[in-house]
Design a protein around this nucleic acid. Structure first.
Lengths: 175, 175
DNA sequence: GTCAATTAGTTTCATATGTAACTATCTCGC
DNA sequence: GCGAGATAGTTACATATGAAACTAATTGAC
């Protein structure tokens, strides 16, 4: 949004300026950023966004645990990556087929099983992480520290508000 | 992100914390906000997100022009709403079928035609706008002025950076 | 004029994703 | 134990979306 755009008052009568409407802005920015990130890994490693999230979640846990770490269940992954269990199931099946992760049944509860990265999976993860970081750095380059921190606060605030609204709405419709 | 989470350093070795990763955060927040907004109009008016964008673009232009405004072409709508022409074509066809917009052929270039809201379309638009505004206000409630402004700046910055990266990537692959 | 290249818009096809239904297993009250 | 209900995960189905092919009309070079 340039200074010129801002000269037009955006609150007259019943008009809503799409360009300054928060959900629209979020969609546009997210779309562009997501695409930019996916370009870093989709072609070279044949990884989709949900698959990347699984790798990222497994890699993150793996590296912050001891050697004898058992892995994560699909349920853990769904919570940690905020994806539905269906998405997790599919992404995991695909990674499994390409030997980037392995599954080990849980003897104590045979409904679930533990997933963890294979050596191949760790290599892919290890190759993507620095690029992902560089990508984020490039995006944030030129931002002041205070703007970056304000942004974090606002994102957190928006998430809380939006999730509260979702829950309220869902409960409205159920009983 | 709570203060507690921040105590864990997120830049050790080759780990990447998904929770603090910008593209992930954007996806999560956008998903929640988009869903919350769609809940305001999808059930009651049977409008999808792309359809809402068409209504929003047409309503915005309509209200900032004179009486004899001719309308917008699909191409105008695609640029203004940042959707692909396929999406615009489909959303317009659906709105057309439900008599929320009308199309008038352009005599000077018979490939294109002008679209504008019908009375029914204006009613729906007029009903959604105040809710959309109230929704945005609810989301932003409690934010300081300076955080809100910083957020706008960062969003603009991210969009420019991400789009520049996209273009660079696209050109990389072509020649 | 006329033909090649461009543009507006639509349709086709392949893919992505969410909801609901399903299977297998577990837990709890009895 | 054992049947009712909950839970982990998968599958089936319906819908959404984007890329590429297509149609129709326009423009520009000659």
């Amino acid at each position: 949004m340039t200074a010129k755009d801002k000269q037009v008052p955006c609150r007259e009568a019943g008009v809503l300026r799409l360009e300054s409407f928060l959900p629209y802005q979020l969609n546009v920015v997210t779309q562009a950023v997501s695409q930019g990130l996916a370009d870093l890994y989709s072609a070279e490693f044949g990884i989709s966004v949900p698959e990347w999230r699984i790798l990222a979640a497994l890699g993150e846990q793996r590296l912050s645990h001891e050697q004898d770490w058992q892995g994560m269940t699909a349920r853990d992954l769904a919570r940690h990556s905020r994806m539905g269990k269906v998405m997790v199931s599919r992404a995991a099946a695909s990674l499994l087929a390409r030997r980037m992760i392995v599954r080990r049944a849980n003897r104590d509860d045979r409904r679930e099983s533990f997933l963890k990265l294979t050596a191949k999976g760790e290599n892919v993860y290890g190759a993507i992480v620095p690029r992902a970081r560089a990508f984020q750095d490039r995006l944030q380059e030129g931002l002041s520290e205070s703007d970056a921190h304000a942004f974090e606060r606002v994102m957190q605030h928006l998430l809380e508000r939006a999730e509260a609204a979702d829950v309220a709405f869902a409960e409205d419709r159920k009983p």
